[in-house]
């Protein structure tokens, strides 16, 4: 398996500094971070709020150039000045749907940008609406949909291009618990169909364990870096609400939480001081 040796996504020694707005010391959001996502692997990144998780994802997407470090996508170097990561799909935390487009037109946007003929795009779009459980809702505008429906729509919009790498930035954090578990199961089912590489950002440890093959724990900001890595060896296919009841899950949760706790408290203390 020569291919398996080349990771789908490799962030090597990434550092991101942001110029301070008032001209003071630059703020280091991420420092010397190395993060690998293997082909077909589901990796979650957890960390306290405000630790630069999204920064890392933007770097992987090619939306943000790191101050130092190299990003490689399937062995090829990603240069943000030449454009975004074409092999990645990005699901944002906040709504990123185009409010002036109906559901179906949002789903086919990516195909449209790539010049796929309209009739073919619509056929694929309808198929994807069906797969995310939105069949018949294609002519609704985003504002006429619930939060869960909008997430499904965004998922279809991203997956229709069948990206090799899926970048997800707390995609379900705005949803209520029930809808969220539904969406997590659907994501797992869709992922199981063709095993894309996933980099999933979340602040919810349970979500991270339930979904992933591997969980990476980040330290509190500033100068965030990975401080722990845990392999999740729970059997698949999983049901996110059932897997939480298993002893293996509880054991792993305890272990990771132990590593995280100090960082969470640090972040909390810093926020209180600010």
């Amino acid at each position: 398996m020569a291919e398996a040796s080349v990771p789908a996504l490799a962030l090597n020694d990434i550092t991101c500094r942001f110029a301070a707005r008032d001209g003071g010391e630059p703020y280091t959001a991420v420092a010397d971070t190395t993060l690998i996502v293997r082909d077909g692997e589901f990796v979650s990144v957890v960390g306290p709020t405000g630790c630069g998780k999204s920064t890392l994802l933007n770097v992987a997407a090619g939306l943000l150039a790191p101050s130092a470090g190299i990003v490689e996508v399937h062995g090829e170097r990603l240069l943000p000045e030449l454009g975004v990561n074409r092999r990645a799909g990005y699901m944002f935390q906040a709504d990123a749907l185009m409010p002036w487009r109906r559901g179906i037109d949002n789903v086919v946007a990516g195909l449209e940008f790539r010049g796929v003929p309209r009739a073919q795009a619509l056929r694929q779009g309808e198929e994807w609406l069906r797969r995310v459980g939105l069949a018949g809702f294609g002519d609704r505008y985003p504002h006429q949909m619930s939060g869960g429906m909008r997430k499904r729509l965004a998922l279809a919009q991203t997956l229709i291009l069948s990206p090799d790498i899926l970048l997800m930035d707390e995609p379900f954090s705005a949803l209520d618990v029930q809808t969220r578990q539904l969406m997590e199961n659907e994501l797992l089912a869709l992922w199981a169909e063709n095993r894309k590489s996933v980099l999933f950002i979340t602040h919810d440890l349970e979500e991270a364990i339930a979904l992933s093959d591997r969980v990476v724990v980040l330290s509190a900001g500033p100068a965030t870096r990975p401080i722990g890595e845990f392999t999740v060896e729970l059997s698949r296919p999983r049901d996110v609400s059932e897997v939480r009841m298993t002893p293996g899950f509880a054991e792993l949760h305890r272990e990771i939480w132990h590593a995280m706790k100090e960082e969470v408290l640090k972040a909390y203390a810093r926020q209180r001081a600010a």
């Binding site: 939306l63 074409r86 185009m98 946007a109 940008f113």
Partner: peptide, 24 residues
């Protein structure tokens, strides 16, 4: 977010103008 999302979906400058800036 919408601009970043459109870029990730493969929109070039001309498509950003037509599909994002103009409708907005």
């Amino acid at each position: 977010n919408i601009i970043a999302s459109a870029r990730m979906l493969g929109a070039g400058p001309r498509q950003l103008l037509r599909s994002i800036y103009l409708p907005s």
